[in-house]
Design a protein around this nucleic acid. Structure first.
Length: 512
RNA sequence: GGCCCGUUCGUCUAGGGGUUAGGACGCAGGAUUUUCAUUCCUGAAACACGGGUUCGAUUCCCGUACGGGCUGCCA
């Protein structure tokens, strides 16, 4: 294959949606797979929608996911600048070139005038007004106006846009790597604005100019762009670049978990699940969201989950490392239909990633979680803790939520267990057990177990009589790791102290 | 409304003219585990509908329905 150069080209208008992250992922995987270049280009041509901080968010999100651009703002590269606002001047020149060639024209219609026409058409019960070859000769533009009139307007500084003059009666063929050949009738296409009155290009112009200038080989983007790709093809032809036109691949959309339509930020809020990679604070409750990162996801799990939303390797393997994803990825395997965002599956992926994590790797993430609650512990303690708990959590915060008692006193004792398992008359026996523990020199899980077994044999008790007491006494709950391991990690002094207190609590519970 | 794209278990999907239509998540049951979780086993669960083409269509073609996208001086 030729030099593979792909770009991810988001608009800094807010938090990067998870669908955008998937688009970035596919671009990234494709580039890596073919030894190509992954480029980040910021499409900030709409100053009215520009949001400060959005670009930084996008970059942080990409890096968290592991998709560091090879070229882009702040990443270097020979085809910069990579922010469209910084490329403003070149777009006007290209638009002008099209006007000079007769491929585009000046249009002096104001937004208000156009709105009025749309409104009038609507009242007449007609379909939406389209600025196209059928009507352009009747509008306020250089098609209808004489050269002198146009020049006069230009000289007078009247604001204008430049529109693409879509040819009549042509078939425009788009070859899509995922959908095959898609044919549009040029008569159905409107004369898209290329250059806005403020001198900024629209997406359509900037996109083509930049993709060409940056030698983009493949455009991998969301399906919402498929209809306008016809215009883009026309633009490549108008510039005489048709032989250097990139190949297109339009990705299926990510749909809502339930109900109709594509996934939106509202879905996250409604269901209490993240739909953004990172948390975002837009200043208002309506524009603030939790991210996958803050929710406690492993970025590898997010990557893996996203990769499978619309793509499948064709094998039965589901868990893929980044390298495996790169090796297995191919555009041909991308599906055609929209994929529903599956929260259950996302959770499963995360759980699998945590289980497969190295205990040492988990130490810093667990430390972060318990520090949120004002605690800390040694690396060794945390590694042992990780080993016991990693099969019992779904998200990172669960390490605290499900096992806080490793770090602070038990808050609540499971009443059901107390009721069923605690026999006040056995209190002396259980006191005696504490003495046996005290006598233990090497307080390991095995030794604790042997001690308990001996205790049971001597007193004709069964596991079911003793272990629930130990478990609830130490952790307060009937859920958790193997008791003996837990006890060994906590240590003799701590355990005995906890048990003594628990005996009192349980006696009290029975008394009342 | 117009244009474009799509449609296999509830969900993500594999498959492809003749298959017991496969896997995963979730769900149900069971085994292991003193608990919980993990793990393992089993089960229920799908080719949208109607016409063609064909000896034979879930698979190819057309239509319908349904879903989705676009239809901005937004991207």
């Amino acid at each position: 294959m030729e030099n593979i150069r792909v770009r991810f080209a988001p608009s800094p208008t807010g938090a990067l949606h998870i669908g955008g992250v998937r688009t970035a992922l596919y671009n990234y995987l494709f580039a890596r797979k073919h030894g190509g270049t992954f480029i980040l280009r910021i499409e900030d041509t709409d100053q009215t929608r520009y949001i400060k901080g959005a670009e930084a968010y996008i970059i942080e999100a990409l890096e968290w996911c592991g998709f560091t651009p090879d070229e882009g703002p702040g990443f270097g590269g020979d085809y910069g600048p990579y922010r469209q606002s910084e490329r403003k001047d070149m777009y006007a020149a290209f638009a002008q070139q099209l006007v000079d060639n007769g491929k585009a024209y000046y249009a002096f219609d104001t937004p208000e005038e156009l709105d009025a026409i749309r409104e009038a058409e609507k009242e007449k019960g007609n379909h939406t007004f389209k600025y196209d070859s059928k009507v352009r000769a009747t509008l306020n533009n250089s098609i209808r106006l004489s050269a002198n009139e146009v020049q006069a307007k230009l000289d007078a500084g009247e604001p204008y846009t430049i529109r693409l003059k879509v040819p009549e009666n042509e078939e425009v063929k788009v070859n899509d790597l995922i959908r095959g050949e898609v044919i549009f009738q040029s008569n159905e296409l409107d004369d898209k604005i290329l250059l806005k009155a403020d001198g900024m290009p629209t997406y359509h112009l900037a996109n083509i100019v930049d993709d060409h200038a940056m030698k983009i080989s493949h455009v991998i983007r969301g399906e919402e762009w498929l209809p306008s790709t016809a215009h883009h093809v026309l633009l490549y032809q108008a510039f005489g670049w048709e032989n250097e036109m990139p190949k297109f691949a339009h990705l299926p959309l990510i749909l809502k978990p339930t109900g109709k339509g594509k996934l939106s930020k509202r879905d996250g809020a409604k269901l209490g699940i993240p739909v953004f990679p990172l948390s975002w604070d837009g200043g208002t409750p309506d524009d603030s969201f939790v991210g996958f990162r803050e929710f406690g996801f492993d970025p590898g799990a997010v990557r893996n989950f996203l990769a499978f939303l619309g793509w499948n390797p064709g094998t039965e393997q589901e868990i893929f490392s980044e390298q495996e994803l790169i090796d297995a990825f191919s555009i041909e395997k991308i599906g055609k239909s929209g994929a529903r965002f599956d929260w259950d599956k996302a959770q499963w992926f995360n759980q699998q990633y945590i289980i497969a994590s190295d205990n040492k790797a988990l130490v810093p993430v667990i430390r972060k979680e318990i520090q949120k609650h004002g605690h800390d512990a040694s690396d060794d303690f945390l590694a042992a803790f990780a080993e016991m708990m990693k099969e019992r959590v779904t998200f990172y915060p669960d390490f605290w939520e499900n096992a806080y008692y490793f770090f602070e006193p038990v808050k609540e004792y499971d009443p059901k267990t107390i009721r069923k398992k605690w026999k006040p008359e056995r209190r002396p026996l259980f006191e005696q057990l504490l003495e046996r523990f005290d006598a233990l020199e090497d307080y390991t899980g095995e030794n604790v177990k042997a001690t308990v077994e001996a205790f049971m044999a001597d007193n004709e008790l069964k596991f079911g009589d003793v272990l629930p007491i130990m478990r609830v006494g130490v952790s307060g709950t009937m859920k958790g790791p193997a008791v003996f391991d837990m006890m060994a990690l906590l240590g003799k002094e701590e355990v005995n102290q906890r048990l003594r207190k628990a005996y009192d609590v349980m006696d009290e519970a029975h008394a009342s």
